[in-house]
């Protein structure tokens, strides 16, 4: 369904996507995995025809560069963050994007109902929460039931609770038989949605595995993010390093790489040192042990 053939995209001197070839047959779902800057979003934008690139991408047999409109007609797209006119009404937005697809919406409410936005049709987009906006984007992406779904870090701007809910909605709505290409660095999304994982490293395809194998390999190393008050943060770092953890400061807390069977070990060390932990988060990391998204703030 999606055929990516030796695609290279450069920004000035930097090469964001380097000779990537990927074939996604109909019904397959592929996760693009990689650190920020690995080229996931760039590749997705190439597929959408937003960038000019060298190489060739076909969606449903339509060349993205030359017949982008036909290609995009097959794609439902959910971005990282919905870019809408804030003043646009929710139902109005649904109508507008339906019209662009040549669809006449009989009832925007029922479309919104499918993503749990029933009763919000009269609101303006700016009045929606982040999670609701993403659900609206999903509703729009599903308009006309397109055969391909392209998702670009769709949960990045959501909190943990919203993420779970959204991924659940996604997996329910996307249904069987749909081709899915998505960028993610959350293991739970990958395991829920993807059948196949393609790891991007510095714009190249590193490894391709099925998602279960990938999840297992990931489990070997995880990253623990601990939120600790500033007064005791440095002390905590010293204690952890003294106990053999490669901990480092990060924002309002510490990042601690942990082995698969020792995820709770840092808690014990800090409890002994009588240092309070306000919050923690377990972050998936790739097999090499590099944190997938070190920039992310704590919830």
């Amino acid at each position: 369904m999606i055929r990516i053939d030796s695609v290279t995209k450069r920004f000035g001197r930097a090469t964001a996507v380097d000779n990537v070839s990927l074939d996604i047959p109909a019904g397959d779902s592929v996760a693009l995995w990689g650190v920020n800057g690995a080229g996931k979003t760039t590749l997705i934008r190439c597929v959408l025809g937003l960038y000019r690139f060298s190489g060739r991408i076909e969606v449903g047999g339509h060349d993205v560069g030359r017949r982008g409109k036909r290609a995009r007609a097959l794609i439902g797209y959910v971005p990282q963050e919905l870019g809408f006119h804030d003043e646009l009404g929710v139902a109005e937005a649904v109508r507008y994007f339906a019209l662009l697809r040549g669809l006449r919406v009989r009832s925007a409410e029922s479309v919104l109902d499918d993503v749990g936005l029933a009763g919000h049709g009269g609101k303006r987009v700016r009045e929606l929460s982040g999670g609701m906006k993403q659900r609206l984007a999903l509703a729009i992406a599903m308009l006309g039931n397109p055969p391909v779904l392209v998702l670009d870090e769709v949960t990045a701007s959501l909190d943990a609770c919203g993420r779970g809910e959204f991924v659940g909605l996604l997996s329910r709505l996307s249904g069987a038989g749909r081709t899915i290409l998505f960028a993610s660095h959350r293991i739970e999304e990958v395991t829920t949605l993807a059948r196949r994982v393609v790891v991007l490293e510095a714009g190249r395809i590193g490894a391709q595995t099925d998602s279960e194998t990938f999840a297992e390999s990931l489990g070997l190393h995880s990253m623990l993010h601990l939120t600790i008050r500033e007064s005791t943060r440095r002390l905590a770092l010293e204690h952890l390093c003294a106990s053999g953890f490669a901990a480092r400061m990060n924002g309002v807390g510490l990042l601690v790489p942990v082995a698969r069977e020792q995820k709770a070990a840092p808690f014990r060390v800090l409890a002994e040192a009588r240092i309070a932990i306000d919050d923690f988060e377990l972050i998936a990391a790739d097999a090499a042990g590099a944190p997938a998204h070190t920039q992310e703030a704590q919830p």
Binding site: G89, E92, R106, S107, E109, S110
Partner: peptide, 13 residues
């Protein structure tokens, strides 16, 4: 003018 989001006559069902 914003088109009104009229109640679906047939409920869309």
């Amino acid at each position: 003018r914003t088109p009104r989001d009229g109640q679906p006559a047939n409920g869309g069902v």
